[in-house]
Computed example of a mutant assay.
Amino acid sequence: MKLSILDQVPRSSESTNEIALKETADLAVAAENLGYHRYWVAEHHDLDALLSPSPEILLAYIGAKTHSIRLGAGAILLPHYKPYKVAETFNMLANLFPGRMDLGLGRSPGGSAEASEALSTNFIEQINQMDAKVEELMHFIRRDFPESHRFSSLNAAPIPFEKPQVFMLGTSEKSAALASKHRLHYVYGHFMKEEDSETVLHAYRSQSNNGQAFACVSVLCADTQEEAERLHRSVRVWQVLQSMNQPMGWIPTKSEAEYVLNQMDADTRRKIEEGDTSTIVGDKQYVKKRLDHLAKTLEVDEFMVLTHAPELRDRLHSYRLLSEIYPQLVSL
């Protein structure tokens, strides 16, 4: 078992785009020093508070500032792109950062319907072609097109000495089956859909011979239970407003969150105060209890941890506390 990080590159109200992008590299450096195994950057579009439309660019920036931690995209949304270009990009990154590059693949739109339309023609049709796109991409990565294939002589140059590890991300048995079919590792998005996690991961393990199975979990750890819940309340304000199509454009500070809460109706305030069951929120003792249970239940090889909080220092402190809870899970 190992601990890794998924970063969606959030922006707080006291930050700017430029500062938030720099902070993701600062967090990656800190994660490497704490002994985390991987640092992945997500892909999102048309979301003001999440600054990650081009994870491959951020990975080059982060890679230049780190030395040993594995880097990757979680995930490149393949329906938007041609497999050849994705293979070229990640082969380039694998050359720049030898033995450190991961390529996670996803099939979600990653943003609004308008963003999907701007990125790709007929997104639904592109999703229907996901199987073929993954097959073509893996042929480029593995360099094993049949001789009769029209791309058999085409290389996704520059070819790295060690090709990137490829993962499928998802929350359904369909994504697990796709990962198994193409001999990919699998990451279940527990933070997105916790209720099917056991079923989907079991389906993957039953179909895959030697693939690794991870779970991406949402965790916010603080010195006390009360402080963790206060921090998470800010995140919930941002999340609930986003779901109501009233985006703030940033994650509010604790004081801003309290002000916004006071302007809301009783039902919305109750929804925010109740929190969300998919995020593990608490002090070290509580977080350890929940994660221990989840590790036993899901039987995964690795936890990838997603943490949202009002400020970088809150996120970093949460990751530091996690590394103290599980010193045996980090790869020092």
Rank of each mutant, 00 (worst) to 15 (best):
L169N: 09
S175G: 09
S175Q: 10
A176N: 04
A176K: 05
A179T: 10
K181F: 07
R183S: 14
V187Y: 10
Y188C: 12
Y188Q: 13
H190K: 09
F191L: 11
M192E: 05
K193R: 14
E195Q: 05
S197C: 12
A203C: 05
A203G: 04
Q207H: 14
S208H: 14
N210C: 02
A213C: 14
C216S: 13
S218R: 11
S218H: 07
V219M: 06
V219D: 04
C221G: 04
D223T: 14
E226Y: 04
E229N: 10
E229R: 13
R230T: 13
V237A: 00
Q242S: 04
S243H: 02
N245D: 15
N245R: 15
P247D: 15
G249I: 14
I251E: 05
I251A: 01
P252Q: 04
K254P: 03
K254Q: 11
K254V: 13
S255K: 10
E256G: 06
E256K: 13
E256S: 10
E258H: 05
Y259Q: 11
V260M: 01
Q263H: 04
M264V: 02
A266I: 13
A266P: 06
R269A: 01
K271F: 00
I272R: 00
E273G: 02
E273L: 09
T279A: 06
T279M: 05
G282W: 03
D283P: 02
